[in-house]
Amino acid sequence: MLYIKCPHCGMRPQIEFSYGGDASVKRPELNKEISDQEWDDFVYNRKSLRGKHLELWQHISGCRQWIKIERDTATHEIFKTFKADEEVA
């Protein structure tokens, strides 16, 4: 079970969080004309990365904030966690 540092609450066990997918995906702006390919890439197409991955989690049984976690998908090492609006360096 992972041990995750919520940037708002501190170290918490994984059971308090729910996974929210790839954090690097950007939603296209509303009312913007975009191609089918761009939309499909946003909705469906994901890389199944081995290694460092920036992902979204929600601290669902805690502060309910969505956060970003930089994690190694192979080793589960967590490098850093970020608030939703924090710039990922």
Partner: peptide
């Protein structure tokens, strides 16, 4: 609720 929070916190802060 999570869905609403997602859009408010991440997409349209």
């Amino acid at each position: 609720l999570s869905h609403l929070e997602y859009y408010l916190q991440l997409i349209w802060p």
